[in-house]
Simulated assay, not measured.
Amino acid sequence: MIRSYRKTDLEEMVRIWYEASVIAHFFIPASFWASQKNAMKEKYLPLAENFIFEDEGQIAGFISLVGEHVCALFVVPEMQGQGIGTALLEHAKTLKGRLSLKVYRENKSALHFYEKCGFVATGEEVDEYTSCVQILMKWE
């Protein structure tokens, strides 16, 4: 079930974001992600429009949007590959009609996932925080 975010979800969302980020972004030191936990909790997630995928009362993943931009899409690592990310992305597509996002070039599985979901690369840029290349993608 996909539902709107509640403030009580915040701790679990940060935990999922951190655990999934460390695994997916193996090319960035885990200490970087650890240093961003407070900003995620206090700034980024509260400012976004967040939707939760709940499975048997537990948060299995979430998507965060600012306008038509996907700022975050994370699924509990052991639950990846079960359609949760796709369901969250489809929910966002229905709500917004078009979407954009950035994904690290080295994160091949995420890049492939977004391409499979109909996103196309429109450019690239260097992330100012990590110095890693990000692919800019759009879906319309």
Rank of each mutant, 00 (worst) to 15 (best):
I28F: 02
E19Y: 03
N50S: 07
Q134E: 13
K138N: 12
Y114M: 05
K93Q: 14
V133G: 12
K138Y: 05
I63M: 03
L10R: 05
M137K: 12
K41P: 02
P77K: 00
G123W: 09
S4I: 12
M1F: 01
V103M: 06
F51V: 00
N50M: 05
A87D: 10
F53M: 01
E124D: 14
S4G: 15
G118V: 14
R98L: 02
V120T: 11
Y18E: 10
I2N: 11
L136A: 13
F27M: 06
K96G: 09
V103I: 04
Y114L: 04
I63S: 06
A48T: 08
A87V: 05
V76H: 05
Q36M: 05
R3I: 11
K116Q: 14
F26C: 09
S35E: 11
A48R: 04
E11P: 04
A92M: 10
L89F: 07
G67R: 03
S64V: 03
R3S: 07
Y104N: 02
L47Q: 12
G67P: 08
E90W: 06
L65R: 09
S109T: 09
P29A: 13
V126R: 15
A48H: 05
D9W: 03
L45C: 01
L99W: 07
G85R: 08
M40R: 03
Y44F: 13
I135C: 08
L45A: 04
Q36R: 05
E125G: 08
A92I: 01
E54L: 05
G123I: 13
L111R: 10
P46V: 10
E54Y: 08
E124K: 10
L136W: 08
E78S: 11
H25D: 04
M137G: 06
A72S: 14
I16Q: 01
S21H: 00
S64F: 08
I16F: 03
W17A: 06
V22S: 04
A48W: 01
A34C: 07
P46F: 08
G81F: 01
S31H: 13
E11H: 10
G61W: 00
G97I: 07
L95M: 13
L95V: 08
S131N: 15
V76C: 01
I84Q: 01
A121F: 08
V70D: 04
L73W: 01
D127T: 04
E128W: 07
V70F: 00
S109P: 06
Q58H: 09
E12M: 12
P77H: 01
M137F: 06
F119A: 09
E115T: 05
F26R: 15
A72F: 10
P77W: 06
M40S: 08
I23W: 10
E90K: 14
E19C: 02
A72M: 15
V70Q: 01
H91K: 13
M1R: 02
T8S: 13
V126W: 12
R6H: 12
W17G: 02
D9A: 00
Q58I: 03
S64H: 07
N38E: 14
